[in-house]
Every structure is written in structure tokens, then in C-alpha cells.
């Protein structure tokens, strides 16, 4: 098992190398640089801009620029942000990273809390009112784009009803302890719901089909023939098997958890990685864009590994040697 994990982690190295080249190449392939698209001061001569470019190393051939960038990363630095003068990329990401993680975890929490019980219920009473309702909601959740749903909930619950704040993470910096926690949750409910909508819908469908599948299996019949109670059959024998693919999916969720929030964060003006990313793209702040993309890449790789490990933990038939 440990050998397997080490082998998998070593495989990350070539993958990340390839990823970094692609990320860098794409960033460079985009037209313009940090100075284009701005209203240039006519008093400042073009040579000043050229000098600035040279200082940032933007005049060098692209492979050289890549190597300089990669060298710094290996040394543990993503460089300085171009837009936020003097701020290191790490500090920018660090400041917002936790917000995104909290939002992601909160969305996941809502997803599981809603999807698993409803999925089980629909599987036990297929074609019931609730099953039809959840199926309809499922298609709705998958079909409606995040940004649109986000705007609708802001309009309804924030503007019309005034139940939840429409943006930000905190109403005041002075809050501490439990009051701060409560306020943060309060701010996260709308973006959390929006972010979790699509995955709630798909987890629900997953859960329904898994539970139905397992309920029809031979070993459930055996458990019933042994005289086990309904609750035991459902919550022990059925659930444990039905949750295997869902738990596996959780690991895969890590990447989308960070990356998927980009649009939702933008809609709610939520100070996370997503808003930073969009802002950096608009300002051609390459170091930040590349660092975030790389970070998401790592998250997906780690998430997949996590999924495989979880899989072997919950299913005794899976062994890695």
C-alpha cells in the first residue's frame, strides 16, 4: 500500500512538469501582456515600457522565460504578482485559499446532507411523489448554470427577502469566536447552495441508482433470509455497499471543489481563489494565473490518488500491491 502511494506520488513529477509547460505555453499564447490594454500615459515614452518589460524578463525568448519561472518554483517561490506590486503570489493565494476551502467543504457538506437521505428514500420508494420530485430537481440542478442560479438566489433571498447577505465572507472584522463562525456560515449559505447545486443533483441520482442496485442483489436477499431487521438490512448491508462509489467520488471532488468555485465566487464577490483567478486573467497577471492553475492541477492529482486510497479502504476487494 505504502509502496503504491509512493509510486503514485513519484508519477506526479512528470505530470506536473507537463502541466507546467502547458500552463505556461497557454498563458504566453494569449495575446497581450501586463501593459497592453491599459490607457497608456502619453507623457511616458515607449522606451520606459520596454525597460519595464525587460525588468520583468518579458523580452526574453519564451523557453528562457519558462526556465526562469520553473527554477523559481523549484526553489519554492511563484514569484511576484504584477498587478499587486510587491506582493508574492504565495501570500495572495494563501490569503484567499482558506476561504475557498471553507466554501467548498460547506458546499460538499450540504450536498451530502441533502443527496444521501433523498437518494436512499427515492430508491426505497421509486416512482413515489418524492422520487419524482427529486428526479425533477436533479435534472433542474444539472441543467441550470451556476451563475444563473446564483443570481436568482441573490435576487430572492438577499434582495427581496433579505435573509442572507449577497456577498463577502464577514460583515465585520470585529467579530470573534462563535459570533464570527456564525457570521461566516451565514455568508456561505447562498454561495454554498449555488456551488453544491449540480453535485447535489448528481450525487442524489448516484445514490438512488446504487441503493436500488444493491437492494436487488443476492446478498441483500441473504441478509433478509437470515432474519435481519429492515433497519439492519438497509443501514448496514445496503448502505455500506451503496456508499462505495460515492465515497470514491469524494476524492475526485477535491479538484472541482477548488476550481469549480471560480464562477460562483465571482457571482457572490466572494474573496477566494476564484475571484483572484479571474482578476489575474483580466490583468494578464501571469505569475498568479499560472500558480493557481498549477495548484488546481495538483489538487486534481492528489484528489485522484485520494479516491483510489479511499476505494481500497471501503472495499476490501480492492488491494494495491
Amino acid at each position: 500500500m505504502y509502496q503504491y502511494i509512493i509510486r503514485r506520488v513519484l508519477q506526479f513529477i512528470p505530470m506536473l512538469l507537463a502541466l507546467s509547460i502547458i500552463v505556461f505555453g497557454l498563458a504566453k499564447a494569449a495575446p497581450g501582456d501586463p501593459f497592453s490594454g491599459k490607457i497608456l500615459d502619453p507623457e511616458v515614452g515607449m522606451e520606459i515600457y520596454e525597460k519595464q518589460r525587460a525588468e520583468l524578463g518579458l523580452d526574453k525568448p519564451i523557453p528562457v522565460q519558462y526556465l526562469r519561472w520553473a527554477e523559481k518554483i523549484v526553489q519554492g517561490s511563484f514569484g511576484e504578482s504584477i498587478t499587486y506590486k510587491g506582493r508574492s503570489v504565495e501570500s495572495l493565494i494563501k490569503e484567499r485559499f482558506l476561504n475557498t476551502v471553507y466554501l467548498g467543504l460547506f458546499a460538499l457538506f450540504i450536498t451530502l446532507l441533502v443527496a444521501i437521505p433523498i437518494g436512499i428514500y427515492s430508491a426505497r420508494r421509486p416512482y413515489s411523489l418524492l422520487d419524482y420530485g427529486s428526479t425533477t430537481f436533479g435534472f433542474f440542478g444539472l441543467a441550470v448554470p451556476n451563475f444563473f442560479f446564483g443570481l436568482v438566489v441573490i435576487y430572492l433571498f438577499s434582495i427581496k427577502l433579505g435573509w442572507f447577505p449577497a456577498q463577502g465572507t464577514l460583515s465585520s472584522n470585529k467579530l470573534t469566536g462563535f459570533a464570527e463562525f456564525k457570521d461566516r456560515i451565514h455568508h456561505m449559505i447562498l454561495p454554498g447552495l449555488t456551488l453544491g447545486l449540480a453535485s447535489t443533483a448528481s450525487y442524489m441520482r448516484y445514490m438512488r441508482s446504487e441503493v436500488m442496485d444493491v437492494l436487488g442483489s443476492d446478498y441483500i436477499r441473504t441478509a433478509k433470509a437470515k432474519g435481519m431487521s429492515n433497519n439492519n438490512v438497509l443501514y448496514k448491508h445496503t448502505l455500506r455497499n451503496a456508499l462505495i462509489p460515492v465515497i470514491t467520488l469524494l476524492g475526485m471532488e477535491l479538484g472541482p471543489l477548488l476550481g469549480g468555485a471560480i464562477i460562483t465566487e465571482q457571482v457572490f464577490n466572494f474573496p477566494g481563489i476564484g475571484t483572484l483567478f479571474i482578476g489575474s486573467v483580466i490583468n494578464r497577471d501571469y505569475p498568479v494565473v499560472m500558480a493557481i492553475t498549477l495548484l488546481l492541477g495538483v489538487a486534481i492529482l492528489v484528489g485522484n490518488l485520494l479516491a483510489d486510497i479511499l476505494y481500497s479502504v471501503v472495499d476490501p476487494r480492492i488491494r494495491y500491491d
Binding site: D218, Y219, T222, A225, G227, R240, N241
Partner: peptide
Amino acid sequence: MTAIRGNHIGMIFQEPMTALNPVF
């Protein structure tokens, strides 16, 4: 009925490969 099944009537099925729960 759950007190009858298994306790007063035992049952053996056709497919031993799938009749046992794989995760316990």
C-alpha cells in the same frame, strides 16, 4: 417474520459467489 427467518427456517441459495455481502 424476521424472528422466523434464519431462526426457524434456514435458507441456502443457488449462487454462493454473490450470496455473501462482499464488504463484511
